[in-house]
């Protein structure tokens, strides 16, 4: 696929990470960090600049859980379902959030405000069960009651 659009932001990333095939994942990481997700037209652009078929890029993007092709909600709630959290009733915490937000794991609220995801081990097993909000705030030693208090902070 060809594209005539100019994307200086992406160009900068490509210059930094290089155009060789093995830079692809690093480029995708950098773009997602910048834009929050990987828009289709950017993937097309990367494909033409790096000279990698779009189908191959698509194959890579969809293989890895970390990459997102759609915009995220305002607040992303990640509930750890790693083993340590699981044996400390992470399922109960998840259920409380699901009831509070009225959505299931993997869904986004209708107003686009919250999305709820299950993740594996946030590396804070000592404080299990753990959730992380917006990728930076981590809350541990939760109970189904306490987690609602936490969520009320995110309006």
């Amino acid at each position: 696929m060809k594209t005539d659009k100019k994307m200086p932001q992406v160009d900068m990333i490509l210059r930094r990470e290089g155009l060789s095939r093995d830079s692809l994942i690093q480029v995708l990481h950098a773009v997602q960090e910048d834009m929050g997700y990987l828009p289709k037209d950017v993937l097309v652009y990367i494909s033409s600049k790096m000279n990698i078929p779009l189908s191959v890029i698509h194959g890579v993007v969809t293989f890895y859980n970390f990459f997102k092709t759609a915009k995220d909600a305002e607040h992303v709630i990640m509930v750890c379902m790693g083993t340590a959290c699981y044996v400390k009733n992470a399922a109960g915490v998840l259920k409380a959030i699901e009831e509070y937000l009225g959505i299931k794991a993997g869904e986004v609220t209708k107003d686009g405000k919250y999305s709820l995801r299950m993740v594996r081990c946030l590396g804070a097993c000592g404080m299990a069960p753990v959730i992380s909000v917006d990728g930076k705030d981590v809350y541990g030693r939760l109970t189904p009651e306490k987690v609602i208090e936490v969520l009320q902070k995110y309006k």
Binding site: D22, F63, Y64
Partner: peptide, 26 residues
């Protein structure tokens, strides 16, 4: 540094190598 992207199988050494090469981590 090369960053992974959330795939457990990439801990397996040959899958990890594919991933460093920018490919699907199989």
């Amino acid at each position: 540094i090369r960053m992974g992207a959330g795939a457990f199988v990439c801990g397996e050494e040959t899958a990890l190598i594919n991933s460093i090469e920018g490919k699907r981590g199989e």
